[in-house]
């Protein structure tokens, strides 16, 4: 039993054994969602705070529900309408909430490294729910969980991550996690959004030829073009992107018959992925969301040390 961490800040610093332990723990929690009473008492009396400095639908709700299914109390904070708009710093905000007696912060922040900063200044557990373009470890874990579930294993499989890699925390977490579990990872998209340095930095392959990548992949993880991070400056336009780099039926004819299509959401339908494919039989996009709940239960359970109780 290798897990003795208080925080989950990124997948880069986790070992293979730690990742596998989260996945295995998540598998056992997945069963809870199928029960009529969807709740276990593992974190009864604990308080989990969602600290969201950036918009989120899936992740914040998924973490809230995960904490509730473990019987924890959940508090939600969003920077809008809070003292942050009065100029309060991240550390002051967190320390004030901590003073109310809480056990874990789930933090989403636009600044890379904000969870790491928070972890240096708090006694609570810190779970990174996405920090800028750096990492989104629970999304990486739920993607890997889904690949393991659908393809039987991760080792030896080829996973292509397509699109706006430059701005993607999902790509970084996936690359670290998948590589540690022995998958072959290819990051693919236009050179401006998939700079070669990123392949070197993450120790994975880079390609700018989508057709060639589609042919080799067992799983195709399509990423959203992050227009809110001004991704539009890096390519000529949406129409061109869809034509040259988007995933559509025509391109998918080259794919392996059993290859699956993934997307972390929200989808720009018709840009990186056609609606037909997003809703088609290769798509595992909604299973990703379901699995996210189990993975986040596992992460909260392990980080809050509930196993030892």
């Amino acid at each position: 039993m290798p897990w003795n961490r208080k925080h989950l800040l990124d997948l880069e610093s986790l070992s293979k054994a730690e990742i596998v332990e989260i996945l295995d723990t998540a598998a056992s929690f997945k069963e809870v969602s199928g029960r009529s009473v969807k709740k276990v008492p593992a974190l009864r009396g604990k308080v989990v705070v969602n600290l969201f400095f950036e918009d989120s639908t899936r992740t914040s709700n998924s973490f809230s529900l995960a904490a509730k299914r473990l019987s924890a109390d959940v508090m939600s904070f969003s920077s809008k309408g809070s003292s942050v708009s009065k100029g309060e710093t991240l550390i002051d905000t967190a320390k004030n909430i901590e003073a109310m007696g809480v056990d874990a912060f789930v933090i989403r922040h636009y600044a890379p490294g904000a969870p790491h900063l928070l972890a240096r200044h708090t006694d609570c557990s810190v779970v990174n729910a996405g920090d800028g373009s750096h990492e989104h470890p629970t999304q990486g874990l739920l993607d890997i969980f889904t690949i393991r579930e659908k393809l039987g294993k991760v080792e030896g499989k080829t996973v292509a991550i397509l699109g706006d890699i430059r701005h993607s925390r999902v790509a970084r977490s996936n690359a670290h996690g998948l590589r540690k579990l022995g998958a072959r990872v290819i990051l693919a998209g236009p050179p401006t959004l998939v700079p070669p340095a990123i392949g070197k930095a993450l120790g994975v392959e880079v390609s700018h030829d989508i057709d060639a990548v589609v042919e080799q992949a067992d799983a195709l993880n399509c990423l959203r073009i992050q227009f809110e991070r001004k991704a539009g400056r890096f390519f000529p336009g949406v129409r061109e992107y869809a034509a040259i780099y988007g995933l559509d039926d025509e391109r998918m004819k080259r794919a392996k018959p059993e290859a699956i299509i993934m997307h972390p959401g929200p989808i720009n339908r018709g840009i990186e992925l056609t609606p037909e494919l997003a809703d088609g039989k290769r798509s595992v996009i909604l299973q990703q969301v379901s699995n996210g709940l189990a993975v986040r239960m596992a992460v909260l359970y392990l980080c809050l040390g509930a196993r030892g109780n």
Partner: peptide, 13 residues
């Protein structure tokens, strides 16, 4: 600096 570290951290280089 733009290089491996900026790419890994997701910070503009």
């Amino acid at each position: 600096h733009e290089g491996k570290v900026s790419a890994a951290l997701g910070i503009n280089g």
